[in-house]
């Protein structure tokens, strides 16, 4: 991945796929309220522009708890815009499209007692 030529005097800037992948995974994780290691990022070249495909579960608050007000579909759509915007802002690459594939739901149950706290990930429901 190379920065657009002409903008940068005296030398080029290269961002490796690893850096790009990890950054997008983190942005996606934040948008979907899951851990970054649960996100799979696919990057493809679309005529010199960047095409992003992310696969991740979506984190959902306890079903018995207060509602967040947004449906999964709305949140996924918001996440898609967020990923596109943040990737472009942070990496300076030209993002042509972002595909968000929600692979499952992570229901977060709030821990009741400090001791014997459940795993932070909660229960995974497909």
């Amino acid at each position: 991945m190379t920065a657009p030529p002409g903008d940068v005097p005296r030398g080029r800037t290269r961002i490796t796929t690893r850096a790009l992948t990890r950054l997008i995974a983190r942005v996606t994780a934040d948008a979907l309220a899951v851990a970054a290691d649960q996100v799979t990022v696919g990057l493809t070249d679309a005529a010199g522009r960047l095409s992003v495909h992310v696969r991740a579960p979506i984190g959902i608050g306890a079903l018995t708890g207060p509602s967040t007000g947004a449906t999964v579909l709305e949140r996924a759509e918001r996440a898609q815009k967020h990923i596109r915007h943040e990737t472009a802002r942070l990496t300076g690459t030209d993002v042509v499209r972002v595909v968000v594939q929600v692979t499952g739901a992570l229901i977060r149950s709030t821990p009741r007692r400090p001791q014997r706290a459940p795993r932070a990930e909660g229960r995974r429901v497909l």
């Binding site: 005296r10 030398g11 080029r12 800037t13 290269r14 961002i15 490796t16 690893r18 850096a19 990890r22 950054l23 983190r26």
Partner: peptide
């Protein structure tokens, strides 16, 4: 020139 590679975040 100063060429920079960002290899990780």
């Amino acid at each position: 020139e100063v060429n920079i590679t960002i290899n990780d975040v």
